[in-house]
């Protein structure tokens, strides 16, 4: 097993664990802001997972999926903030 394979395997395990922890925060999170931050972090982890997967399989096509996911995650967080701020003002 080469070094890069070892590194990607360890990354997969670590990212999987962190997704589990973030999912716990998503379920428990007392306030809605905690849940939104957890969702944002979840998509960041998904992007990291896609990057590791692209390294493992030696393809570059999946990286575009990561770019699109980054755009949509940013847009989702901004939209959540937009509607949260509007909701509290009323």
């Amino acid at each position: 097993m080469s070094f890069i394979e070892l590194a990607t395997n360890i990354s997969v395990i670590t990212i999987g664990l962190s997704i589990l922890i973030i999912f716990f925060r998503l379920l428990v999170g007392p306030s809605i802001e905690d849940r939104i931050v957890a969702l944002d972090l979840l998509s960041a982890n998904a992007i990291a997972f896609i990057a590791v997967y692209a390294i493992q399989n030696k393809t570059t096509t999946f990286l575009d999926v990561g770019v699109i996911l980054a755009i949509l995650a940013f847009l989702g967080t901004v939209a959540f903030a937009f509607y949260l701020e509007r909701g509290t003002r009323r």
Partner: peptide, 28 residues
């Protein structure tokens, strides 16, 4: 994404979605 779509991943659908996301960001 639109131009690459015929032989590789991509295409009109996902290109349109990304463009719509760009305009949605501008609207927000």
């Amino acid at each position: 994404l639109l131009l690459r779509g015929h032989n590789e991943p991509g295409g009109g659908f996902v290109g349109g979605l990304v463009a719509a996301a760009a305009y949605a960001l501008y609207f927000i």
